[in-house]
Design a protein around this nucleic acid. Sequence first.
DNA 1: TCCATACTTGGACAGTTGTAAAAATACAAA
DNA 2: TTTGTATTTTTACAACTGTCCAAGTATGGA
Lengths: 197, 197
Amino acid sequence: MKYDPNIKQSRGIERTQRAFATAMFDSLAEKPFDKITVNALCEKADYPRATFYNYFDDKFDLLNFCWFKLGQDTHLDVNNTQENKLTIKETFAQIYKLFEDYQSLLLSIIENNPIDSPLVNHFVRHFTDVIYASIKNSVDTKVIHTPSELVAQHCSTTIIEILKWIYLGQHKVTLDEAETYLTELLSGPIHLQKNKQ
Amino acid sequence: MKYDPNIKQSRGIERTQRAFATAMFDSLAEKPFDKITVNALCEKADYPRATFYNYFDDKFDLLNFCWFKLGQDTHLDVNNTQENKLTIKETFAQIYKLFEDYQSLLLSIIENNPIDSPLVNHFVRHFTDVIYASIKNSVDTKVIHTPSELVAQHCSTTIIEILKWIYLGQHKVTLDEAETYLTELLSGPIHLQKNKQ
DNA sequence: TCCATACTTGGACAGTTGTAAAAATACAAA
DNA sequence: TTTGTATTTTTACAACTGTCCAAGTATGGA
């Protein structure tokens, strides 16, 4: 990350960054990520290449900015790095809604990119980190042996796993049902031993 | 994947593929993945570039081959795509041992590559898929509402999560302890509600 | 208004990627 | 050994990447 998006930038810089982000979002809706070149992005945003590298290290760095803006635009509480005060369920509901808002973007992303592509990984990774930061103080490991960081990690990936199932796997699931899944996966009775017949 | 590694190849082809895989493993121990160029791999393997592209689509395609060979070399039962007959715990123990065997490789990988790099993602993804294939018939979802594919997915990522904690996060954890983690994360009492004080 | 400083831009560069077409080589059957 | 086929290698190519520097352009303070 060349520029910290948390710091308020001057109007001109903000506009330039936005232009590249918009170019990226438009391109993502059209074609696979590995067919999106820095050249084409500059073409779309109507800025010279040197300006791109002025603000971003590479395509992925621009993606960081894009995902961050996505959260910012929906006034996501989980983005507040100051105080992590949300429960796991509250966090889950927030991200559920965020993904719901950007359903059409997600749809074109998975149409154009394989699920194990660097792009999808980058996306998933970003929001896993966001969730982790949001819930890390909410996990309670008093009665178990597993380290709390690992449990928090597990909770974040579980949340993402369910949202991937819904929005990347294109299954219609209401928030209520999704919350049932979450409860079952995190504290439900999953049998480790196969029933030998 | 240009060539199916499951199909027995002629000796010459096998040797050439091995040479590239060895070049890749050697390079991974030395430097970050994005500094490993196809040119350099060909240099190391002592084959022309066209030969590389003859066998592999790109660097990632070679990685597929590498990870597969890793499993093959340790006679991993989970690689048997024919019959998936392992319980979750058995599968976990097998992959635990595989990672233990290749500890030094994993160590240099995480020294040279960020945890969210395409390389680490590719590696993790490969073994998540291996585990998923191995356990998908072992999950029991009779008493819950969550779809069995999602549960199987959840079990695979949980296994990988623990192994990442141990081998990529460099925490010393015995197989016994690791199995405790697995039981707790998959069927333990994780509280979703934060204890309000 | 002028100037100094910081930022933006254009152009050039070496190195990389993936592809395509011929040329060379290996291999198997007759 | 010869012949036909399949594979490997050589060579060349167009396009992209990330970096650098020098020239151009804003911007704010004196």
